[in-house]
C-alpha cells in the first residue's frame, strides 16, 4: 500500500475518470451522459461505463489467434512450382532461405512482419489483459502506449498475406512457374485478424481503473 502510494504519488489527483465523475461517455460519438443513462441520446448507441465482458472477449480472440498461429508456422505459406519442381516454404523457412540468398533486408522485413510483430502482439495483449486484472504497478501511460502501438501495428502484419495473395494472382504460368498459397496463408491471415479483434475488444478504459482501485 505504501509502496503504491509512493509510486503513484502526485498523479492520483491528476486523473479524474468519467465514472468517478458520475458520467458515462459514448464510445461512438463521444457525448457524455449521466452514469445511469442506457442509450446515447445523440447517436443511440448503447452506453456502458465499463465493458464487463471485454477481457473475456480479448482472451477468447487472443487464444483463437494463437491457435491459428501454430498451423501458420507449421504448414507451408507459399507453394511455388517452377518447371515441374514443387517447392513449399513455411514462414520461417522462407526467411532462412532469404538469408541464405543474402537478401538480409527482405528477410528482416518478412521476419519482423510475420514473426516479431504477431508474437509481440500476443505478448502485448496478454500483458495488457493480465496487468489490467492484477492491478500491476505499471504506468497507465505505458499501458496506453502499448495498446496504441498494438492497435496501429496490427494491420501491418498482414503484409505477408498480401505478398502471397498478389503472387498467387500474378504468377500463374502453368508449367513454367506458378505460385499458390498454402494452408499457412489462411491460418496466418486468420491469426492476424483474430489478434486485431482481440486488440479491438480491449476496453482501454480498464487501463485507468487500476488507479481507481488503487485509490479506493
Amino acid at each position: 500500500m505504501s509502496v503504491h502510494d509512493m509510486a503513484n504519488a502526485g498523479r492520483t489527483h491528476e486523473i479524474l475518470t468519467a465514472r468517478r465523475a458520475g458520467l458515462v461517455g459514448c464510445t461512438t460519438c463521444g457525448k457524455v451522459h449521466p452514469l445511469d443513462t442506457r442509450v446515447c441520446r445523440r447517436c443511440g448507441a448503447a452506453l456502458q461505463s465499463r465493458d464487463e465482458t471485454s477481457l473475456q472477449r480479448v482472451w477468447a480472440w487472443l487464444i483463437a489467434g494463437l491457435v491459428a498461429y501454430i498451423p501458420a508456422n507449421v504448414y507451408p505459406m507459399l507453394i511455388t512450382q517452377t518447371f515441374g519442381k514443387r517447392q513449399e516454404s513455411t514462414i520461417v523457412g522462407g526467411v532462412i532461405e532469404l538469408v541464405h540468398h543474402g537478401s538480409w533486408g527482405v528477410a528482416l522485413i518478412v521476419f519482423v512482419a510475420s514473426v516479431v510483430v504477431p508474437i509481440g502482439k500476443f505478448i502485448a495483449i496478454a500483458w495488457l489483459a493480465i496487468s489490467v486484472r492484477s492491478r500491476s504497478a505499471a504506468d497507465g501511460h505505458t499501458r496506453q502506449h502499448v495498446y496504441e502501438i498494438v492497435e496501429f501495428i496490427g494491420r501491418w502484419s498482414m503484409i505477408d498475406v498480401f505478398v502471397v495473395a498478389i503472387l498467387a494472382a500474378l504468377v500463374q504460368l502453368d508449367f513454367v512457374a506458378s505460385v499458390n498459397p498454402g494452408t499457412a496463408a489462411v491460418s496466418f491471415a486468420l491469426s492476424v485478424a483474430f489478434t486485431m479483434l482481440s486488440a479491438q475488444n480491449f476496453d482501454p478504459r480498464l487501463i485507468w481503473d487500476a488507479y481507481e482501485a488503487d485509490d479506493t
Binding site: W61, I63, L190
Partner: peptide, 13 residues
Amino acid sequence: NLSLVWLVPIAAL
C-alpha cells in the same frame, strides 16, 4: 457470464 466469443477459439482449435 461467459461470452459467446469463446466459440471462436474453440472453433479455431
